[in-house]
Simulated assay, not measured.
Amino acid sequence: MTEQDTFYVLYRFKVTPGREEAFKEGWCRMTEAIREQRGGLGSRLHYSKDGWWMAYAKWPNRKAWESSQRLSESPDSEAAELMAQSIQERLPPIPLVPEIDLIDRRSEIGG
């Protein structure tokens, strides 16, 4: 896998007040299950002051993400349920192809 092949997907959610911890737990569990079972490369979850939760997930390529999307069974049904019970609103995912990546990776590996 080269960095040029890397593919990202942006997700956006409104979470029911009081359900934030359940949502975060579900998100972490689902990310791990996707990594272990479907080849995902992890995700980052962010909160915005306007009340939206935003996340982007990294995949080795678009084909791997699309293949995962076609599977009907969840890689972690309990995590999926935690998230479903927590999400008030969900916007469609936005596929992203990186053009320029200026994030300092040294900070990610403790260097």
Results as ranks from 00 to 15, higher is better:
98 P>W: 00
98 P>V: 02
97 V>C: 07
92 P>Y: 06
91 L>E: 15
83 M>F: 06
86 S>R: 01
108 E>I: 08
100 I>C: 05
101 D>Q: 13
94 I>H: 08
84 A>C: 06
101 D>S: 13
82 L>E: 01
105 R>Q: 14
82 L>S: 02
91 L>Q: 15
102 L>G: 03
99 E>Q: 11
76 D>P: 02
97 V>E: 12
92 P>H: 08
83 M>R: 05
90 R>C: 14
83 M>V: 12
108 E>N: 06
102 L>H: 12
82 L>G: 00
103 I>D: 12
110 G>C: 02
83 M>I: 12
100 I>Q: 06
85 Q>H: 08
99 E>A: 13
75 P>I: 05
80 A>W: 01
83 M>L: 09
103 I>W: 10
89 E>L: 14
98 P>Y: 01
86 S>A: 15
103 I>C: 10
81 E>A: 10
93 P>G: 07
108 E>C: 06
93 P>A: 10
73 E>W: 01
85 Q>F: 02
75 P>S: 05
90 R>A: 14
94 I>E: 11
109 I>K: 03
107 S>C: 00
93 P>E: 11
92 P>T: 10
73 E>L: 11
94 I>K: 12
98 P>A: 12
85 Q>E: 15
89 E>F: 10
100 I>L: 12
94 I>N: 07
98 P>I: 02
77 S>A: 14
102 L>P: 00
85 Q>G: 11
87 I>D: 00
99 E>W: 06
78 E>I: 01
100 I>H: 04
78 E>K: 04
90 R>G: 04
101 D>P: 00
107 S>M: 03
96 L>Q: 13
79 A>M: 08
100 I>P: 00
99 E>K: 08
109 I>P: 00
74 S>A: 13
85 Q>V: 05
101 D>M: 11
96 L>C: 15
95 P>Y: 10
107 S>A: 09
78 E>V: 03
99 E>I: 13
77 S>F: 07
94 I>D: 06
82 L>V: 02
109 I>G: 07
109 I>E: 05
76 D>M: 05
82 L>F: 06
92 P>S: 14
84 A>Q: 09
84 A>M: 07
77 S>Y: 06
88 Q>C: 07
74 S>T: 08
107 S>H: 02
77 S>T: 12
99 E>M: 10
85 Q>T: 09
103 I>E: 13
86 S>C: 03
75 P>M: 05
105 R>H: 14
97 V>R: 15
104 D>V: 07
82 L>T: 00
75 P>L: 05
76 D>Y: 02
83 M>P: 01
75 P>Q: 03
95 P>D: 12
83 M>A: 08
100 I>V: 14
107 S>Y: 02
79 A>H: 03
103 I>Q: 13
80 A>S: 12
88 Q>P: 00
101 D>L: 14
97 V>H: 14
106 R>V: 05
95 P>G: 14
95 P>M: 09
104 D>Y: 04
75 P>E: 03
89 E>C: 07
98 P>M: 06
77 S>C: 06
87 I>C: 02
88 Q>W: 04
75 P>G: 05
91 L>N: 15
99 E>F: 11
78 E>Q: 06
85 Q>K: 15
108 E>K: 04
89 E>H: 10
87 I>K: 01
82 L>H: 02
74 S>W: 08
105 R>D: 12
104 D>H: 09
85 Q>N: 15
80 A>T: 14
